[in-house]
Design a protein around this nucleic acid. Sequence first.
DNA 1: TTGTAAGCGTTATCAC
DNA 2: GTGATAACGCTTACAA
Lengths: 341, 341
Amino acid sequence: MQKSEVTIHDISKALGIDSSTVSRALNDSPRVSSKTKAKILAKATELGYRRNSLASNLRTNKTYTIGVVVPRISRNFFSNVISGIEETAYENGYNVIICQSLESLDREQKIMNTLLSNRVDGVLISISMETTSFKHLEPFKNYGTPIVFYDRPCNYGGCTSVSINDFEASFMATEHLIFNGCKRIVHFGGPQHIELYQNRKKGYISALEKHGLEFDKTLFLETKLTEEDGVKLAKKVINIKGGVDGIYAANDTSAISAMRYFKLNGVIIPDEISIVGFNNDPISVVIEPSLTTVNQPDFEMGQIAAKALIDQIKEKKCKTKALVLGSDLIVRGSSSKIRLS
Amino acid sequence: MQKSEVTIHDISKALGIDSSTVSRALNDSPRVSSKTKAKILAKATELGYRRNSLASNLRTNKTYTIGVVVPRISRNFFSNVISGIEETAYENGYNVIICQSLESLDREQKIMNTLLSNRVDGVLISISMETTSFKHLEPFKNYGTPIVFYDRPCNYGGCTSVSINDFEASFMATEHLIFNGCKRIVHFGGPQHIELYQNRKKGYISALEKHGLEFDKTLFLETKLTEEDGVKLAKKVINIKGGVDGIYAANDTSAISAMRYFKLNGVIIPDEISIVGFNNDPISVVIEPSLTTVNQPDFEMGQIAAKALIDQIKEKKCKTKALVLGSDLIVRGSSSKIRLS
DNA sequence: TTGTAAGCGTTATCAC
DNA sequence: GTGATAACGCTTACAA
């Protein structure tokens, strides 16, 4: 019931040892004899001492905390990335502070301000879909606080980006539809100021061209790829002149939402329209037919991004511009002319 | 390119105004004339000043940060709770630091230690499935740092718990199966040292008894309700002597996993076995047949828990022991003898 | 190996 | 309304 805040000075007084020695002992410095170290540690636990990180961080100008900015933690892909980040961070003695931008630039700016004020040692960020300028990242440069982008790479200040090869993955996905006989393939694209979605579009176009299919602008539909967008997109697809026999969506959320709309409206998948998504969301394997989709190494991406950031915090490593991970297409029922379970 | 850390002293020097006045101005104290306030603010932005929260927090012994401990952020229910927490926290000027226990007591203990060291102003926690002792919460009492439980209530130190009425929800769910003609209903239960799962079991038993169905111990199956558990449970159910015509699962994860196993093995749902889950996971509406499930006000739960905690941090409110929210059963195809979409 | 003393950046308590 | 000064709890030269 004591409202104590036991400090090193309390331990110091209790033992008649100077607080500097206590500090050293608690930090396991080799400059303290093991005898006194033991005495101090014992007293510390006895009194219920807990280091005050605030004071310590202020003094050392290190927080051992990294900020993680994520568009939306409820997306399975991102929550797996976060788990990977946490794993690596904790292994290296870093704490993680997670913030959701909810795809809003305004929130993202506020978040960056708080992270700055809290003097995080580094930031891992997947920029929001609204982010077009990087002004809110500038201050970090001045402070020498490293930033690493994950999933959505950015050409900014020579920062490292960790992602998959979106062009190639997109190319594969589109080509798969072509191999399955699709000739009029719609692409559900994301905001085109985001490099990631540009690359997915480019991969799509490139695959079309390789197979002698001309890129038809009316078959490219740009949205934020939310569940609501999925329904709107599905409606549009149904009304496209000349018909559509395939869809390559830049995420599963929109693909699944569209699929559900099609099913409710009697459009047979994959017989009438084949669909390929992106992210391998848990729903993609449950929906019927199951959704063909691009699988990314999400957990690993988190680990690698965290490792890269920590290396930069320790400034032992030179910055790698881009770390590119592999990905693979998981073929399921939604894209095959023969129905699979 | 400057490696500056602009402090109030820099502003102080630049203007020939004492740093204490600068501090007051930056905190919008009424004891500074608006003229000097304007001058200081202008200089601050000019120099790119950012408050050092570490120093400020150390001095004031307040961090305006609350720790959130969550079993697993990838669970839709929890990520929605988190969104609710963040919303309310930010509105009230609090930062949120999210930590995953991954249902491990060991991790939970480590997390609590870090939160303590970081001197969070309060903690919101949904205890892990392994948590049987509360020793790791003790230190918070000594520091006078309030703790609020959410989703999984606990009788500990007079702390507030925010949850739904699990007994009632469970009762409803089970009764619904009975109304649909089920006589041999299996319950997929969670760890019974957790109050939440005790209450769900009690609700199940109570509903059975009300309708003259005896509680059969062999129909109660306790696991951690993971996806893997769902498969194991489904196998067991198929082999239960005397057969089974209904399942009430304490979460959707296990229910959905079991459903998928049943479907692959030719067990027809709901004709042969009706199923009801818990949490209204996004998958529950996509799977076929869609899953009848208990819907909880997740986002709201987060808001309310955060509000309760913040009130206690400000010590303006007396502690309410328990805050109980409503819930409702969403009836879908998995529990009706007539198939629904 | 241990002690002394200064300081991290901010705010609170006095004065004036 | 503003200024001087001490203090929050910890770390780290430097001294002993």
